[in-house]
């Protein structure tokens, strides 16, 4: 029983990070209908910024969020303006390829600049934990989960109540209609890509103290983010949050009750089942 609750707990906490990656992707996908295959590489950039700040200036990884997030936001906005914007009306396969190409360029440029060495951030809390009802709770993981909750809440508030947030949502619902309503769709796209990139960067920063960093680290996270987004429903922030946690828990429990080597497989099967039987995702509305 202990094993069950322990796995459940770590699944929920790790799911928080997956959620954050997924939220970034869902915003990009929702607003532009572009599948961003470079999402994991943006996360990787966030990790490297965090690592750089930590090793050069000894800035705590969690504190460095305040720098990493805006830096990545600007980078994302730039990518959107220079590259993504040109293919918004292109064929979907060309959009996919463009982001694959950008991902290759980013990861290989980082490799040339910083070598392909694994970087490990060692903080005083990298492996610390406390006990609660006989379960061990990882401190860094709990902290990153709380940050995720806070950011999700703030983001939800931003999208629901502010004018810009509503404009972003309107663009996500219907690009043409939003344009007719006088919303600056191009600006919303830049904002959305910047926001999505910043969230990927934050996820990278949150992972940095417990994970490791190398130029090709992004790949598996990109795939995971796709699953999170589809599970939650396109463009749904709350859905992506639930999707992330659901995937974290599924992985964790199937590692125990199916086999460790099959936990990703179980996630993909779940993904396909949801696609087939509840195609709008857990909380999605329209999907045309």
């Amino acid at each position: 029983m202990n094993v069950f609750f322990q796995s459940l707990l770590s699944g929920v906490l790790v799911g928080g990070v997956y959620a954050l990656i997924g939220i970034g992707l869902t915003i990009i996908f929702g607003v532009m209908r572009v599948i961003n295959f470079a999402h994991g590489d943006l996360l990787m950039l966030g990790m490297y910024v965090t690592w750089g700040l930590f090793t050069l200036f000894n800035i705590d990884p969690y504190l460095s969020l305040l720098i990493t997030a805006p830096v990545l936001f600007l980078w994302g906005a730039l990518l959107q303006k220079v590259f993504i914007n040109r293919v918004l009306d292109a064929l979907p396969q060309n959009q996919i390829l463009l982001t694959i190409g950008l991902g290759l360029v980013m990861s290989n440029a980082v490799m040339l600049g910083f070598t392909s060495d694994y970087r490990i951030l060692t903080t005083s809390y990298s492996s610390s934990s406390f006990r609660l009802f006989g379960l061990s709770v990882s401190e860094p993981l709990l902290f990153s989960f709380l940050v995720t909750v806070a950011i999700t809440g703030a983001l939800f508030w931003f999208l629901q109540t502010t004018d810009t947030g509503q404009a972003i949502r309107a663009t996500a619902q219907d690009r043409d209609a939003a344009q007719l309503m006088g919303i600056n769709v191009k600006r919303m796209s830049v904002l959305a890509f910047g926001l999505g990139t910043a969230l990927a960067g934050i996820a990278g920063a949150l992972l940095a103290p417990t994970y490791y960093i190398f130029p090709q680290v992004g790949g598996p996270f990109t795939l995971k983010a796709f699953v999170v987004v589809v599970l939650g429903g396109m463009g749904s922030v709350v859905g992506a949050t639930l999707g992330g946690i659901l995937i974290g828990v599924t992985e964790s429990l199937s590692a125990v009750y199916v086999a460790s080597g099959l936990k990703e497989l179980v996630v993909y099967v779940l993904f396909l089942l949801i696609l087939l039987f509840r195609p709008s995702g857990l909380l999605g509305k329209s999907r045309t």
Binding site: F29, I35, P92, L262, E264, L265, Y268, L275, P279
Partner: peptide, 28 residues
């Protein structure tokens, strides 16, 4: 029969998922 029920980006993602499922099964 599974993936063609879906269109556009959903089809792309489902096709990736199928290949990954087979890869993971082949590893396991």
């Amino acid at each position: 029969s599974i993936t063609f029920r879906l269109r556009g980006p959903y089809f792309v993602l489902a096709s990736i998922a199928m290949a990954e499922i087979i890869r993971l099964a082949a590893l396991h």
